[in-house]
Amino acid sequence: MSEPMNGATAITPPTLYIEGPAFWAPTLPGWDLARAAFREEGALTDPPAKRPSPQMLAPAERRRAPDTVALALEVATAAVAASGRDAKALPCVFASAHGDLGINDYMCSTLATDPSVLSPTKFHNSVHNAAVGYWSIGTGCMAASNSVSAFETSFAAALLETATQCAADQQAILLVGFDVPAVGPLASVTTSRGLMATAFVVSPVRTERAVASFDWSLEPGPSQVPALHSPAAKVLDTNSIADALPVFEALARGSTAPLRLPLAPTMSLRLLLHPLD
């Protein structure tokens, strides 16, 4: 425990562990490629991939699934496989700044012009928790799930939620973050370009699959997004889930420098990552 503050005893959050990092972007479709590029040891994929094709979906579902679902399921599947865990028993936290902005634009424009032609499928996929719903159904997972949205601090908020659940319940949690481009009038109020998705499992104990540990705490005071170092990460910085990039870049580079991920203008999530052999 830390020193008492204002008559109360502050409890230091426990060290947690990261398993199975997964990453997808059109120019870096996979964690191995992303890790090399973030370490400035590899190049971007050319031509870029169009979108992932998650094999957990049947072919017809795969074609109908929106980009948000395809992204989320691709990295979630990769992270769980790399962690060696059972998806059916793994609670999860999914994060997206806005959900599917393309479908939201379609919904708004159709409702404004001709509501009678609104697509039931698109309506079904418009809800913010659509991706985690697909995941739960596809894996048969009955564990708790959560869908987090916090504008441009969505990954940090979801990581805090994941770490808190993991520490409180002493149970591993899958964390998935993803976002897609803003289109139509929504693009004038939010900036998001390209496709990007990230995932890993947070564990309360070290296992043979753990790649890093991290200490975490809330830090008051003015917040600022951590600087990115690699050209590959900087290229992706316009996606709404880009607040995940400092974490994944640090994992790739083995950095132990403190990371302060903004949660609000005057609050950050402070992380100390420690790579494991």
Rank of each mutant, 00 (worst) to 15 (best):
A25T: 12
P185G: 03
D46Y: 11
A72T: 00
A252I: 05
L16P: 08
R206N: 03
P222C: 08
R206S: 06
Q170K: 15
P185Y: 09
S203P: 06
T190A: 15
S136Y: 08
A227M: 00
D237E: 13
S109M: 12
L228F: 03
P181I: 13
R270D: 00
V180T: 15
A163V: 00
W24T: 07
N6I: 05
P21M: 05
I18V: 07
F94H: 11
S149K: 13
P120V: 03
T68I: 11
S149T: 15
L44I: 05
P54W: 07
A89S: 14
L276A: 00
L57W: 13
V180Y: 09
F94D: 04
G133A: 14
G140M: 07
L174T: 07
P204L: 06
W135L: 03
P120G: 07
K50Y: 12
C92L: 13
E40L: 10
S217P: 04
A36W: 12
D169L: 10
P231S: 11
V235A: 14
A163H: 00
F23A: 00
A78N: 04
M5G: 00
T12G: 01
R260H: 11
N146L: 13
V180S: 15
E41D: 11
V211E: 04
P246S: 06
A25W: 01
A43S: 14
V148I: 12
A79W: 05
L159S: 08
V201F: 04
D100S: 15
R206A: 08
R39N: 14
F155R: 10
G254M: 06
T9N: 15
P91N: 06
E161C: 09
P47R: 08
Q224L: 10
V189A: 14
L175G: 09
P204A: 03
P265H: 03
T207Q: 10
R51P: 02
A157D: 08
V80N: 01
C166P: 04
D46C: 09
G138Y: 09
P246G: 01
P26G: 03
L272F: 00
T121I: 07
L228H: 06
A257G: 03
T191Q: 12
E61Q: 15
A72I: 01
M196V: 03
A250H: 00
V132K: 06
V176K: 12
